[in-house]
């Protein structure tokens, strides 16, 4: 399993297309920094093939006022969860 880190909004950047195209069926994606706006329900469609494999970083959601606005399509984790995900992955790939 590869952990893909995305730090750009799916709305303003097309890097998400490259990231999704590079993801295997077991790979996971973690939204960080500006990427966490992908947690909004309106953006769920971008991630429709990632059911159960999409995560967003709590700290970045909190600072942007998005924590309570997240949709069901994303699992919220904190920095410790980030570490756990990293441990479970055999490598990480950053998309920015």
């Amino acid at each position: 399993m590869i952990l893909h880190l995305l730090n750009r909004s799916p709305v303003t950047s097309r890097v998400i297309d490259d990231a999704l195209a590079a993801m295997g069926p077991d790979d996971r994606m973690l939204l960080i920094e500006d990427g966490v706006s992908g947690g909004l329900p309106a953006q769920a469609l971008f991630f429709k093939n990632l059911a159960g494999r999409l995560f967003a970083l709590r700290e970045d959601l909190v600072s942007r006022g998005l924590l309570e606005r997240c949709g069901e399509h994303v699992t919220i984790i904190d920095v410790e969860g980030f570490v756990d995900l990293t441990e479970e992955a055999n490598k990480t790939v950053s998309w920015y």
Binding site: I2, A21, A22, G24, K91, V93, S94, W95, Y96
Partner: peptide, 17 residues
């Protein structure tokens, strides 16, 4: 092609973007 990119990422020890 698209699926080939997935295999490429899996078959390398380190990936830098």
């Amino acid at each position: 092609e698209a699926d080939g990119v997935v295999s490429l990422l899996q078959s390398h020890r380190l990936v830098l973007n």
